[in-house]
């Protein structure tokens, strides 16, 4: 099984530990992982800003880096959803996976050797949740399910909590976070408040962009609560 690790641009630049954990975790689970060296960005920041018409170069570069793999796996629901919905190449669209859905649906992970003795607050990033259907949503009348909590339950010592509003958006929203700064920050503050009420050590999720936004707010308020991508927990060991 040839797996290509897709490392979104901002993770590459600002959160290398998330990419390292993804790589190590996939290898630990028996995947032969390659990291295409000239990858950059999926094109989402431009497309969500209304500039999908200028993302041709990004799309071409993505194809040049990721064609020919069985699976393309990335630690970002939002970027993966963008590729699934908008990349011009059907083969890319059908072979790209968010890492947790890949673990559950493709690798069908039943156990993990992980250990993370902390209480964490689970943020369900919208694009992974409602877009990729990584978990059920409170809007619909459907049986509850979650690929994220399924995986977290395999981690020894880890206690996870939902915030009171289980799946409300954190307010990141791509360029929304700067063009609608006031609403964006208010949304983030409200999410954080609910996680803090649960006395969590970390806010975790499957999308680093949401976490980056909440981390910025947490740090400004001097909070001790940290943020971690879920793969960092799944990859953690004693």
């Amino acid at each position: 099984m040839r797996v290509a690790l897709f490392v979104p641009c901002y993770i590459d630049q600002f959160y290398p530990q998330v990419a390292i954990a993804s790589l190590e975790l996939l290898e630990k689970l028996g995947c032969e992982v390659e990291v295409p060296g000239n990858q950059t960005c999926c094109g989402q920041p431009m497309a969500n800003s209304g500039f999908a018409h200028v993302t041709g170069g990004c799309d071409a570069n993505f194809s040049a880096n990721f064609s020919g793999y069985d699976y393309i796996v990335g630690p970002s629901g939002s970027c993966v959803l963008h590729l699934k919905e908008h990349h011009p190449d059907a083969k890319i669209r059908s072979s790209v996976y968010e890492i947790c859905e890949f673990l559950v649906d493709v690798l069908q992970v039943k156990t993990l050797p992980s250990y993370f003795p902390h209480r964490v607050g689970l943020h369900q990033s919208c694009h992974g949740q409602r877009g990729l259907r990584i978990s059920s949503m409170t809007e619909r009348n459907e049986a509850p399910f979650s690929k994220l909590t399924y995986l977290l339950d395999l981690v020894k010592g880890c206690e996870w909590k939902y915030p009171e509003r289980q799946d409300e958006c954190c307010g990141f929203g791509g360029t929304f976070c700067v063009t609608e700064e006031a609403v964006s920050v208010k949304m983030g503050q409200d999410r954080i408040q609910e996680h803090q009420a649960n006395q969590v050590d970390f806010i975790i999720g499957a999308d680093t962009s949401c976490l980056m936004h909440m981390e910025g707010i947490l740090k400004r308020s001097g909070s001790k609560v940290g943020v971690k991508h879920i793969v960092e927990i799944l990859n953690a060991h004693a």
Binding site: V7, I11, D12, Q13, F14, Y15, P16, Q17, A19, I20, L23, V35, G37, C177, V178, T179, E181, V185, G188, M212, H213, E215, G216, I217, K219, R220
Partner: peptide, 23 residues
């Protein structure tokens, strides 16, 4: 002038990018 920074800290810049680490 940076609307991000108005009410949020910027992410810390790591020494190496992931690609640099990988190399």
């Amino acid at each position: 002038l940076n609307p991000w920074y108005k009410q949020r800290e910027m992410p810390e810049a790591p020494k190496q990018s992931f690609q640099e680490w990988y190399k």
